[in-house]
Design a protein around this nucleic acid. Structure first.
Lengths: 93, 93
DNA sequence: TAAAGTAGTTTATAAAATAAACCTATTTAT
DNA sequence: ATAAATAGGTTTATTTTATAAACTACTTTA
């Protein structure tokens, strides 16, 4: 009946990040921070977790001499997100 | 864009309980425990939180000489659940 | 050159989820 | 009659998360 919800995705901030990335395919740290209205610290930690899970990939570079962190959803991340959504629907129908 | 998700409902077990109660209007502890496949301890704690939030009401009585805990969703609980679902949809569309 | 801003990371704290242990009473087997 | 198992939970302890606060490193502006 109620299948377990992927704990990595069942988190407000991580879910919002994945939701953005699934539409955009690529986004930088500042963009994600603004769109999710999160603090930098929290976002940094949660992006780390998503990367360690293989749900996103993170590229670090420089733009205009400043650090630039770019995030991209992976195929694994897309499937995990889709599975999570299907699953979650059972809870809210 | 992403409104905050009611932390009381954004929990796997509490959400499953509310999901059941919104359909049934009333259910006892054992039924909820079975349907949600949770441990008694966890369920006990989470029902307490839902009650303290005013989302459910809990009646304690006896059936066949044994303790019987019956839960019912409140009007407040119904609105909170509906608001949560509407909100959550923004994350998963 | 000092102050303020950018782009983050690390560390510490608070809150949540979960499991393990416990409690009280009842039923069943010996 | 009594020991063991079961029912129906609660309480306490431990682990995991989420979040905020503090910090780092560098750049730009006054």
């Amino acid at each position: 009946m109620f299948k377990p919800l992927d704990p990595l995705l069942h988190s407000q901030l991580r879910l919002a990040v994945m939701s953005l990335l699934i539409g955009l395919e690529e986004a930088d740290f500042t963009f994600l921070k603004e769109k999710t209205a999160s603090t930098a610290g929290n976002l940094s930690v949660q992006l780390d977790k998503l990367e360690k899970a293989g749900y996103i990939s993170i590229q670090k570079s420089f733009r205009d001499k400043r650090p630039l962190t770019t995030c991209k959803i992976t195929r694994k991340g897309i499937s995990a997100f889709e599975a999570y959504v299907e699953n979650l629907k059972k809870y809210i129908e």
